[in-house]
């Protein structure tokens, strides 16, 4: 299982446009990906409602996990996405 820790760069946190872009990217990988706070129960990263309900704020650290072929590459691209201020783009 691949795991990454990333700090949310988006200035409004992980909702609105950033959440929508993230979920679309997670869906595009075709893998089972989970997102959550360290030591808390994670949610399905392809569920927009789940991701928004997580309410991850700007500057907060979150954990991504994935299984299957290409899990490392998939997570790297998602980490890259979350490390940008998507709202400012």
């Amino acid at each position: 299982m691949a795991t990454r820790i990333v700090t949310i760069a988006s200035s409004v946190g992980l909702h609105a446009r950033p959440a929508s872009l993230f979920v679309q990217a997670a869906n595009a990988t075709g893998l089972d990906i989970e997102i959550g706070r360290p030591d808390e129960e994670s949610v399905d990263a392809t569920s927009i409602l789940g991701v928004m309900a997580l309410g991850a704020r700007h500057g907060e650290q979150i954990v991504l996990t994935a299984e299957g072929d290409g899990a490392d590459e998939a997570l790297d691209s998602l980490v890259e996405l979350l490390s940008r201020d998507l709202d400012a783009e």
Partner: peptide, 16 residues
């Protein structure tokens, strides 16, 4: 467009 795309994601939400 952004609002509608996000709303389409809600319609396909697995958790829901």
């Amino acid at each position: 467009q952004q609002i509608l795309t996000a709303t389409a994601l809600i319609a396909r939400d697995k958790g829901l």
